[in-house]
Amino acid sequence: MHYSIILPLLIQELGQIEGRKKFQKIVHILQCAGAPFDERFEFAQFGPFSSTLKAEIDHLDVFEILSEEQRVNTYVFSSGKRLPELRQAGLLSESPAWSGFAKGLNGKSASELEALSTTLFLLERGYQGEALDTKFEELKAHLLEFYENAKEQGLAILQNRGKWQPLQAAV
């Protein structure tokens, strides 16, 4: 789905997203879970990152479809003044199948999402078992407290791709 539809749809469903890192990770995880986001992610300092997604968000912000507001220590994304125009044009469906799943992700912390997104990135590239554990620790030692949960959720997400089962609560 084209970004000028699906990103406003995401914001419509979530209301707001606190932090650029959270925005990136939510989209990456949704994509892994089967939602029709087209962005290409690469591994960067804070885990999977898409410079395409960043440019798309900037573009939608310039046209006031999304709003990116700088607050102390973070940026908050919400509906822009012109988002209702997309709704009036009938371009935003009421509630996509992935809406509840996305809301579940938005309730997690940026660190939890970074751990889950990193785990999914590794799983999709064939890491499993001990190799997965070792690579995660090598790359994200400071997120080890979230790893076991991320691994369980990551495997479930890939197994149930497109089924939109709710994420289990973080341990």
Binding site: S4, H59, L60, F63, E85, A89
Partner: peptide, 12 residues
């Protein structure tokens, strides 16, 4: 012109 609303209408 790259207005996302107009573009969305076209793609839709």
């Amino acid at each position: 012109k790259k207005d996302p609303v107009d573009f969305g209408r076209l793609m839709g």
